[in-house]
Nucleic acid binder design. Structure first.
Length: 105
DNA sequence: ATACTGACCACCA
DNA sequence: GTGGTGGCCAGTA
């Protein structure tokens, strides 16, 4: 019933699943994940979810669309990214989201 | 129900 | 490069 087959849990799960699929050195933005999850424009959901979730996901591989590191976790994120071979300068990654979307030259 | 905030994004000055 | 504004949606008071 109730028709709605999709409950928020399903949606969150989908987003987390995408974050888990990220490999070392692969950095994407919130918007990219949201879009890949089927929710274009809802980047805030991704941010809120990663901020609240306790799941074991590589959140550090997610940055803002401007390549800026996550506010409140820049230190740890920087260390982790550097450990994976990602170039980080002054709190922002050089060449942000690789991969399928964006890839702002 | 309204109001505010937020690990965002795009646009424009 | 910085800063302000609007839009988006969800959680919380």
């Amino acid at each position: 019933m109730s028709g709605d087959g999709d409950r928020n849990g399903d949606r969150d799960r989908r987003i987390l699943d995408i974050v888990r699929s990220l490999g070392p050195g692969e950095v994407v933005s919130y918007g990219d994940i949201a879009e890949d999850a089927g929710h274009p424009g809802r980047s805030r959901l991704v941010g809120r979810l990663l901020a609240t979730t306790t799941e074991d996901v590589p959140w550090w591989r997610v940055v803002t669309s401007n390549g800026r590191l996550v506010p409140g976790a820049e230190i740890e994120q920087r260390q982790r990214l550097l450990g994976e071979g990602v170039t980080v300068t002054d709190g922002h990654v050089r060449r942000a989201p690789i991969g399928r979307f964006s890839s702002r030259r």
